[in-house]
Design a protein around this nucleic acid. Structure first.
Length: 844
RNA sequence: GCCCAGGUGGCGGAAUUGGCAUACGCGUAAGAUUAAGGAUCUUAUGGGGAAACUCUUGCGGGUUCGAAUCCCGCCCUGGGCACCA
């Protein structure tokens, strides 16, 4: 490997010294030799087995569990490298650390593989898990593998089925009919991603919407608490995620208002009313029509038998088609049709025409809107198109009676002062909202209301590879829960995978046919399985007691380990998994299974790994294979680069040159430490001159520790690099052992295999995760002289060295004495600003 | 359209509180070493200028002794939501 790295070493002038004559014996850095060796040693010593030790502080470090897609990608390597730094750092700080890993093993790709390649989903999944586990092991992550499980294990999903049944008892789960994507040619339900562009992924037939009975979690009951706790308990989550979740829950306050139908036009008279939701009850007197979603149940009822019936039906059908075909691609024009009926204004009693309109969605609010064209842009456009009246009821500012300019160019949507609004005229919008809502409440015509965008969570999936929903349908008794003693409802293995003709489970007679637990008559099992987000909503509780066979988890162990101190995963789960797991925690709390409001204290979203500016993907052909990198550089280099090249939360641009840099750095560390060891072994005289080195050593400990605390892993590594550069610039022989030990210890969370190997080379026997994290001595950091920056009028002119105890006047004298400064100071300074120990600014 | 995050050398990025802009790494150039290549080591490396100096953190203003950092306006990029009543 050539000369030892001491750049100003005496060896230059004393070439007879043994270490410069004998370079061939220097050992080479061979990650393929040392990495497997230490992985085995760590395992044999059970280093990463988590224990509930009341004498220690606990630390629960969680990374999002992977879907076993086949092979690890660089995103996994990055995610888990970040986690491993935190885990090893906390172990070195003496915490009892829980750092587990499992497999999110149910899901559609396994089933797709079965349909396409004829391999059973279970086999496909197990083989993928085996391979990916071997990759994780080769990367040397500090997982407690004793706690590993796959969510497709019956010993896992049986508890999920039990939790479902308990939720059912508490009415936290219910059944309702709703629309799913249906391929008429394959005769099967499609997931949204299988129905992109309104076309079936397999046969390209046009997708239809079909009504099916499905199961729902009543997550909307928790909307308010989920929203509230974002502010109360998730202070350490990224603002970005908190914003997304607030928007997803989508709370909006307003009023519901009832519009009675005018019955005279219909025979027999309809008793129903239309309920609308509005955030602007203050504009109630400006209502000139009411708009219903085209699929609102009243649309068909009201138009039936009227001259408009045919037109309405055409419109409804047209809207339905547009609806499920990529409606977000183009903004389509507002359209609608008179349904042939009227309702009554709740306060004025006026007749109000009812329209079906394509811009009203059934899924939000009540699916019906009171239209105020003067004060809502959408209603305005609609009114213009169909020549409907526009009635101004809000004036900007406080001057009631200000001139209105009748041909409005657009709606005035801001708040203001009410006009032409009966007894409410003259009130501000704010006051009117409260008073009008209250008045409606008193009259039994609605009242103040809060709505949420968050919808109940449909958990039914018409798929095979998932946890069966533990329900039996009996012709006599209806849906009946499977008794607890009969759990788990096992997923049968011998089913056909054709991708057509409905769910494979429905074709398994043995699975399908059963008897009713209540009446013992013939019954059929539910052939739907649960959404895989259900598994990932509670897996982190199972880690605390993965073998527990009496319950989903051991409440005592949950109490010890929870909450999760740090959770690391991608931002793509902001609105899905990260809301569901919060919801599930609250549900389990309310079921009395644990005492916890929120599962995760601190969340970090690592950025994506990109190449050429785009996310790595097979279709783009820009993927980097971790196996290739492993063979070429080993685990430590991969880990180091993925931590160094970008801040944790930023995207990481992949760079082949960059990983070479990480490799070079580790080789330099290796050569320095091995060279030093050999030097010491040779028993050479050791002319210590250590003041600067010791100070730098403590300074580096400080920097690395502080950067680890705030998860700035890239700058922590930069600090170690600077430290190495300084050590390399010093005569090897003058380096005290502690200087090299510090280097190795600080490197341990980032490049654990090399650190372990060098730690032994330095003569130690303990494992580094059991070695205490070093502390620094603030007194050592003090230097006897200080460097003071000298500015003139805010511009840097010189730096001066002063004794550490120099006063402001001392510094001023020294600064003014500098020729570089004097050149810019003509007369007496106007003003001098002194920042102690840092800077002096002379204003002239 | 609304709401978040961001914009710093040739590139990835650094700069805990307003106090030396460009740490660290990559790349590049020259040199040492080598039979040669690779590896390694040394030196240089934001722009302009011979130099003194000067300009420079998306753009334009402002506050301040002093601004990448704070304030106002604008441009661009990424993300979220989106006829949400």
């Amino acid at each position: 490997m050539g000369c030892p790295p001491a750049r100003f070493s005496l060896s230059c002038i004393l070439p007879f010294l043994p270490y410069s004559c004998n370079p061939v014996t220097e050992t080479k850095y061979q990650p393929d030799v040392i990495e497997p060796k230490w992985q085995k040693a760590w395992e044999a010593a059970k280093l990463f087995q988590a224990t509930e030790d009341s004498a220690k502080k606990k630390y629960y470090l969680l990374e999002m569990l992977p879907y076993p897609s086949g092979v690890l990608h660089m995103g996994h390597v990055r995610n888990y490298s970040i986690g491993d730094v935190a885990a090893r750092y906390k172990m070195m700080q003496g915490h009892s650390v829980l750092h587990p890993m499992a497999w999110d093993a149910f899901g559609m790709p396994a089933e797709n593989a079965a349909i396409k390649h004829g391999v059973h989903p279970a086999k496909w999944t197990r083989e993928n898990i085996d391979y990916m586990r071997s990759q994780l092991r080769r990367l040397g992550f500090s997982y407690d593998w004793n706690r590993e499980f796959a969510t497709c294990d019956p010993s896992y999903y049986r508890w999920e089925q039990l939790i479902f049944l308990k939720m059912l008892e508490r009415k936290m789960v219910y059944r309702k009919t709703s629309l799913v994507n249906w391929c008429p040619s394959c005769e099967t339900v499609l997931a949204n991603e299988q129905a992109e562009g309104g076309v079936c992924w397999r046969c390209e037939a046009s997708v239809e919407m079909k009504s099916m009975t499905q199961w729902y979690f009543r997550i909307t009951d928790y909307a308010e608490e989920l929203l509230r706790d974002i502010d109360l308990q998730l202070g350490s989550w990224p603002e970005r995620i908190r914003t997304i979740q607030r928007g997803w829950i989508g709370k909006s306050e307003g009023a519901t208002i009832d519009f009675e139908l005018v019955g005279a036009v219909r025979e027999p008279p309809l008793q129903e009313k239309i309920t609308v939701f509005t955030t602007r009850p203050d504009t109630l007197f400006g209502v000139t029509f009411v708009s219903l979603a085209s699929n609102h149940p009243l649309v068909a009822k009201l138009s039936a038998g009227t001259p408009e019936a045919k037109k309405v039906q055409d419109f409804v059908e047209r809207s339905a088609r547009i609806d499920h075909q990529a409606r977000l691609a183009e903004k389509y024009e507002k359209e609608g049709v008179f349904v042939g009926a009227y309702c009554k204004h709740p306060l004025t009693g006026e007749n109000i025409p009812i329209y079906a309109a394509n811009f009203v969605v059934m899924e939000y609010g009540t699916g019906a809107v009171m239209a105020v064209p003067a004060h809502d842009q959408r209603d305005f456009e609609f009114a213009k198109k169909y020549n409907l009246p526009i009635k101004v009821v809000i004036q900007p500012g406080k001057n009631v009676g200000a001139v209105r300019e009748p041909p409005l160019q657009q709606a005035y949507a801001d708040e203001g002062v009410l006009i032409d609004s009966g007894e409410f005229t003259g009130l501000s919008s704010r006051d009117a909202m409260a008073k009008i809502s209250a008045a409606l409440g008193e009259r039994g015509q609605g009242g103040p209301t809060v709505t949420y965008k968050l919808k109940d969570w449909c958990l039914s999936r018409q798929r095979y590879w998932g946890a069966p929903i533990p329900i039996v349908y009996c012709d006599v008794c209806g849906p009946v829960p499977v008794p607890e003693k009969d759990l788990p409802v096992l997923l049968p293995e011998d089913v056909p995978f054709t991708g057509t003709g409905g769910s494979p489970l429905a074709k398994s007679e043995r699975f399908l046919q059963t008897s009713c637990p209540t009446c013992h008559g013939k019954a059929n099992r539910v052939t739907d399985t649960m959404d895989t987000f259900v598994e990932s909503s509670w897996y982190f509780f199972r880690y605390t007691s993965p073998g527990c066979d009496r319950a989903a988890f051991d409440a005592k162990k949950v109490a010890y380990w929870f909450p999760i101190d740090l959770y690391i995963g991608g931002v793509e789960h902001a609105a899905g998994h990260l809301i569901y797991c919060r919801y599930y925690t609250k549900v389990l709390r309310d079921l009395g299974m644990l005492k916890l409001d929120e599962p995760v204290v601190k969340l970090i979203n690592q950025g994506m790994v990109i190449k050429g500016g785009a996310k790595m993907s097979k279709s783009k052909g820009n993927v980097v294979d971790p196996d290739d990198l492993m063979a070429k550089y080993g685990a430590d280099t991969m880990r180091l680069f993925s931590l160094f090249a970008a801040p944790v939360e930023g995207d990481l641009e992949w760079s082949n040159a960059g990983i070479e840099g990480a490799w070079r750095f580790l080789n330099r560390v290796w050569r320095l430490v091995q060279g030093w060891c050999k030097d010491v072994g040779a028993g050479l005289p050791r002319p210590y001159k250590t003041d600067d080195i010791i100070r730098l050593q403590h300074h580096t400990i400080k920097r690395v520790t502080e950067d680890l605390e705030r998860y700035h892993y890239n700058t922590a590594i930069a600090a170690i690099m600077e430290y190495l550069n300084a050590l390399s610039d010093t005569d090897v022989r003058s380096l005290p052992a502690s200087a090299l030990e510090t280097l190795v210890i600080l490197l341990a969370p980032f490049a654990p295999h090399m650190a372990e190997e060098l730690w032994r080379a330095l003569g130690h026997q303990d494992f580094l995760v059991r070695h205490p994290w070093p502390s620094y001595d603030a007194a050592v950091l003090q230097s006897s002289t200080l460097n003071i920056v000298v500015q003139v009028n805010g511009k840097l002119r010189d730096q001066v060295s002063v004794p550490a105890d120099a006063t402001e006047d001392d510094v001023k004298k020294v600064a003014l004495a500098s020729p570089k400064v004097a050149a810019h100071v003509t007369g007496a300074p106007k003003k001098v600003i002194y920042v102690p120990k840092k800077l002096i600014n002379i204003v002239v």
